[in-house]
């Protein structure tokens, strides 16, 4: 962790491709942490303190030290190579915020779905929204180092993932692991035939 050289803060004077991606996933899966870790600029957060009233709706499943939750978005930027600059938009995980997705998803080329092995099924909703929109996605299991991660074949089966959809395990606090997760998604997006179909539409 942290051994990797930090990315450049100013964009150099070359031709760049802006790649907009969403970072999605259920409540309290680590989306803000992921964007925080990977961003080369100071990330933007819209966090609010969680209220007692919300406890009925937002089940923390034993996560006791979480006191804030994203209400609008997280934003971060990361230069992946000389040519690709990643713009990451993290979206709130709760179902009641889905109506705001329309704008945030606009122009996105792909989405990285974060999932927690202890509650995989919580990521199913967001995956079906992405499939309905025809947005290419990859799945990253956030490894909290607390439970053993099942073999990838089992996870693929649980998510019912097509073979070409990337599945990676990463610790959202680890800079190179989060970068690898993003690279797997970007490679998938660039290889996706759907993308070309949408462009010509």
């Amino acid at each position: 962790m942290g051994s990797e050289p930090s990315g450049e803060v100013y964009l150099p004077d070359t031709v760049r491709t802006a790649v907009k991606v969403l970072v999605v996933g259920p409540f309290a899966v680590g989306k803000s942490t992921f964007v925080n870790t990977l961003s080369e600029i100071e990330p933007l957060h819209t966090e609010e303190t969680m209220t007692r009233d919300g406890a009925v709706v937002d089940d923390l499943h034993g996560i006791t030290d979480k006191t804030t939750t994203t209400v609008a978005l997280d934003f971060g930027r990361r230069t992946l190579s000389d040519r690709v600059v990643l713009y990451m938009f993290g979206t709130p995980g709760q179902q009641r915020f889905l109506s705001m997705w329309e704008d945030l998803a606009h122009g996105a080329l792909g989405a990285l779905v974060l999932a927690d092995v202890a509650r995989l099924e919580d990521s199913f909703d967001v995956i079906s929204v992405l499939e309905d929109r025809g947005l290419p996605y990859g799945v990253a299991i956030n490894d909290f180092n607390t439970v053993e991660i099942p073999p990838h074949e089992e996870l693929r089966e649980a998510f019912d993932l097509l073979p070409e959809i990337p599945l990676v395990t990463c610790d959202a606090r680890d800079r190179s692991a989060t970068a690898r997760a993003m690279v797997s998604l970007v490679e998938h997006v660039l290889a996706s035939p759907l993308q070309h179909a949408r462009e010509s539409a």
Binding site: V9, L11, E42, L44, F75, D103
Partner: peptide, 26 residues
């Protein structure tokens, strides 16, 4: 509409323009 900067002016750095734009899109 996707939250990316088209152009910016005034007292704002490039990184902050990116952040401002993302915030405005939301």
């Amino acid at each position: 509409r996707d939250g990316l900067v088209i152009t910016a002016t005034g007292e704002i750095s490039e990184a902050d323009a990116d952040r401002f734009a993302a915030c405005l899109a939301s």
